[in-house]
């Protein structure tokens, strides 16, 4: 390890939801979450469902706010705290540094699958030609039939949509990947493709924080497993 800070670090992070529509009830989710992701690592979040794994990922993407603590993201030479970053900084990080693959594809009507992936590549800093060829490579590797490339993914099956989503999330060279069950609706063949893609990203120096319910995949990709239950324990204390 060098003296560089981790790519991503949670420092005593807490998250709770205040439900104003239910009389202001406070729903604590996480407290005292501390973890770090270094280049080449694939840190997998473990623990029962409802333990706050997805919330942690969403906080790491700036999608959920932090109630307390800091989430430090290394962005080139500087470190940005997502807990206090301005919206524009978070948007900037999403373009250059943070990739997020959720279980669900939120797509724009009328845009074809290949164009969706390509656009994500361009937004992530690839030249248009590079984005175009990489989009084709990824969709090919993920076994998305070429006849579907020009069609809007809204018409696709769940598994096809998820593969488009993975291609979209992985096309650019962002150093931090946040993966929320990217293999949930994939068959074994495509799960293997995703495992290989993750390995390539790690080899290229990316840091990965992910949730994988499938035990085989988890074993195959994880360099370390962090049990989120520990963060709930701190909360109970």
């Amino acid at each position: 390890m060098t003296s560089l800070p981790p790519l991503l670090a949670f420092d005593d992070v807490a998250k709770s939801f205040t439900l104003h529509l239910r009389g202001g009830a406070v729903l604590p989710v996480i407290a005292g979450a501390t973890l770090a992701v270094h280049p080449g690592e694939c840190v997998v979040l473990g623990g029962a469902s409802g333990a706050g794994k997805s919330s942690l990922l969403k906080m790491a993407y700036g999608n959920y706010r932090c109630a307390a603590g800091a989430i430090r993201v290394r962005d080139g030479a500087r470190v940005v705290d997502l807990a206090t970053a301005a919206p524009r900084e978070i948007l900037g990080l999403r373009r250059t540094t943070l990739a997020y693959v959720s279980q669900f594809l939120r797509v724009i009507p009328r845009v074809g699958a290949r164009a969706v992936v390509e656009a994500a590549g361009i937004e992530g800093g690839l030249a248009p030609e590079a984005a175009r060829s990489r989009a084709a490579d990824l969709l090919t590797r993920l076994n998305l039939p070429e006849r579907l490339w020009g069609l809007p993914p809204a018409t696709f099956s769940g598994g096809e949509q998820q593969r488009v989503n993975i291609a979209r999330g992985l096309i650019a060279d962002r150093p931090i990947l946040l993966l929320d069950e990217p293999t949930a609706s994939l068959d074994a063949e495509n799960r293997a493709v995703v495992v290989a893609l993750i390995a390539e990203k790690r080899a290229a120096g990316a840091g990965i924080l992910g949730i994988f319910h499938d035990a085989d995949v988890r074993e195959a990709v994880a360099t370390r497993i962090v049990d989120v239950a520990a963060f709930r324990g701190a909360m109970a204390a």
């Binding site: 104003h20 202001g24 969403k58 700036g62 959920y64 706010r65 948007l91």
Partner: peptide
Amino acid sequence: TGLTDQVLDDPQAAYTQL
């Protein structure tokens, strides 16, 4: 006010939640 997906997915104010 804030990042669009943050405000819509994790709204803080009572009115925004409504």
